[in-house]
Simulated assay, not measured.
Amino acid sequence: MPTPTSIGLFPLHSVLLPGATLSLRVFERRYLDLVSECTRDQRGFGVCLILIGDEVGVPATPAKYGTQARIDDFSTGDDGLLHLRIRGGRRFRVGTTHVRDNGLLLADVDWCEFDPDDELRPEHATLSLVLERILEQVGGEHAKAPPARMDEASWVGWRLAELLPLQESQRQGLLQMDDPHARLDWLLRWIS
């Protein structure tokens, strides 16, 4: 059994999905330190949905599954705060957690397996069409993806989970599923 990896957590009231992006404003010392360490060591940090607590102040209770975040871009905003654009990578399961002196939540995590490169099954073809229509309307980076991506079960599922008007608890449920086809089954029931 692989040894768990220890990473810093950035608990949010949002779920970061693999391949998705989020914008963050960073102002608390513990998170500025985390960003500095991650930049220096060229590694990511973990984003987990908050189950109990708030994004600021006392460390929150995170969900048991999260996503590794990599910093895509950063700037200083007009408000003087650090602005980050992060992208979701690999999923993980949270083991034990502890709090640093500066209030940063650290977690020992077990990495989830990467989704297989399965093709979309015929019963999920409607979902590919729904995603195409959404991307035509909203544009963005995923709208420029090669057409072959619309046949990838994992990619279609993650993009729909990102773009559909789901509750964060529903996104969290999808994040916790290991099977991309089960994710698509759930999304198909939700759309129907």
Rank of each mutant, 00 (worst) to 15 (best):
M1S: 15
P2S: 10
T5D: 10
T5C: 03
I7C: 01
G8M: 04
H13W: 00
H13V: 02
S14M: 07
V15T: 08
L16V: 12
P18L: 11
G19A: 05
S23R: 15
L24E: 05
V26K: 12
E28A: 10
R29Q: 13
R30D: 12
R30Q: 11
R30Y: 09
Y31A: 08
Y31F: 14
D33T: 02
L34S: 10
S36Q: 04
E37S: 07
C38S: 05
C38F: 00
T39H: 01
R40M: 00
D41P: 00
D41N: 04
Q42M: 05
V47C: 15
C48A: 15
I50F: 08
G53T: 11
D54T: 08
V56D: 12
V58L: 10
V58C: 05
P59H: 02
P59F: 02
P59A: 03
T61D: 10
P62N: 09
Y65D: 07
Y65C: 15
G66R: 07
T67Q: 02
A69E: 11
R70W: 13
D72I: 15
S75G: 06
S75W: 11
T76P: 00
D78F: 03
D78K: 06
D79A: 00
D79P: 06
G80Q: 02
L81P: 01
L81Q: 12
G88A: 10
R91W: 05
F92Q: 09
R93N: 06
T96Q: 13
H98G: 02
V99G: 15
R100D: 10
N102L: 04
A107H: 03
D110W: 14
W111V: 08
P116M: 13
P116V: 11
D117R: 10
D118N: 14
R121G: 08
P122K: 06
P122I: 06
E123L: 07
H124C: 02
H124L: 02
T126K: 05
S128D: 01
L131C: 09
L131R: 04
R133Q: 15
I134W: 00
Q137R: 13
Q137F: 06
V138W: 01
G140W: 07
H142R: 05
H142V: 01
H142N: 05
A143F: 11
A145T: 10
P147D: 15
A148G: 01
W155T: 04
W155L: 06
W158I: 02
W158Y: 13
R159L: 05
R159D: 07
A161T: 04
A161M: 04
E162M: 05
E162C: 05
E162P: 05
L166V: 03
Q167D: 07
Q167L: 06
Q167C: 01
E168D: 14
Q172F: 09
G173P: 06
G173R: 11
G173M: 13
L174G: 02
L174D: 07
L174M: 13
D179L: 02
R183P: 09
W186N: 11
W186P: 09
W186K: 09
L187V: 09
L188V: 00
I191E: 03
I191Q: 12
I191S: 08
S192N: 15
S192I: 09
S192D: 12
